[in-house]
Amino acid sequence: MSKNFVRILRLAESLSDAPSEGLTKAQIVERAGLPSSTVYRLLSEMEQTGYVYTTPEGRLLPNFSFERRIGIGNISPIQLRQACASISAELESASEIILRRGHSLLWHVTDEHPLQAIKLRAHPGYVRSTYELDSISRLALAYCNIDDIESSWDLSSFHEVGVQGNHLDWHEARKRILATDRQSMQFDMLGNAKGIRRFSIAITTPEGELVSLLTVAEAAIPVRDEEAHIARIRSTLESTKVELELCSASSHANGGLKSVTLPHKTG
């Protein structure tokens, strides 16, 4: 697959869920995670061909629809979006479905709550490396064979989460990956350099293989009762994990994707 084609797909995904007032070019650059020169060039071409419209305020709106329609692990896109929307509504935070693709993490679904304290940079199609050993990288890499990591990753590139981002030698990075409990929620209370902390849990197949990460993303600000805060998020993620894995198992047993509506959470 050519690099230019991948860039066009990432840009299309970044534009696909633009708010009604549109997006600035700077916002699109941040969402897509691409060089600004590349984004500006592609946006110009898309505008010339009628796929992007510029509002009188100078914001950009897509003149197309774009979404992934194939599910993951026998879980349909509708079920994934329902799960994130339910979490977002319950916790007033963002929720995400994140996939591991090679050495990278790919944002597949995101849902942001209007009252959340911080806006996410990551939107569907956003890609970042697994070298920052935050909760999502640790959990994703815990499902990899450690020998595969040692043979194909750049072992000198791992670093801490947070503003400092201190380098981690492979001995320490390896120890952290192996110590990660794959069955438990992972989190970093101090957050990353963007001021976001994530709580993540693994969605797996009946055979125990990783399908995706399910997350809660929120502003890394102090909370009054940290223990209760963590417990509430853990309960929400664990119950949604059970629902999604039941959908996956049921669909697999019936020979493919089925349209199953997730239970609506209340309270």
Rank of each mutant, 00 (worst) to 15 (best):
G256S: 06
A220N: 02
P62E: 11
S135C: 12
V52I: 15
V242I: 13
I196E: 03
E226V: 09
E160V: 01
Q27C: 06
L168K: 00
P114I: 09
L106M: 09
S88F: 06
P124T: 00
A140E: 00
E57I: 08
S157Q: 13
V29L: 09
L262G: 04
A83P: 03
L23V: 08
F64Y: 11
V260K: 01
T54H: 06
D111Y: 12
S212L: 05
S37Y: 14
H103N: 15
A89L: 13
K241H: 13
E45F: 12
E226I: 12
S137E: 06
A122L: 05
E150W: 03
D154M: 03
H123P: 00
G102P: 06
V211W: 02
W170E: 03
S86F: 05
L23C: 09
T240I: 07
T130E: 02
I118W: 05
V29W: 03
S129Q: 07
A217F: 04
K265D: 06
T55K: 10
P77L: 04
S250C: 10
E245K: 10
A231P: 00
P56G: 05
I72T: 04
M46R: 02
W153T: 03
I203H: 00
D134T: 03
P56K: 08
S16C: 10
E92D: 09
N166I: 03
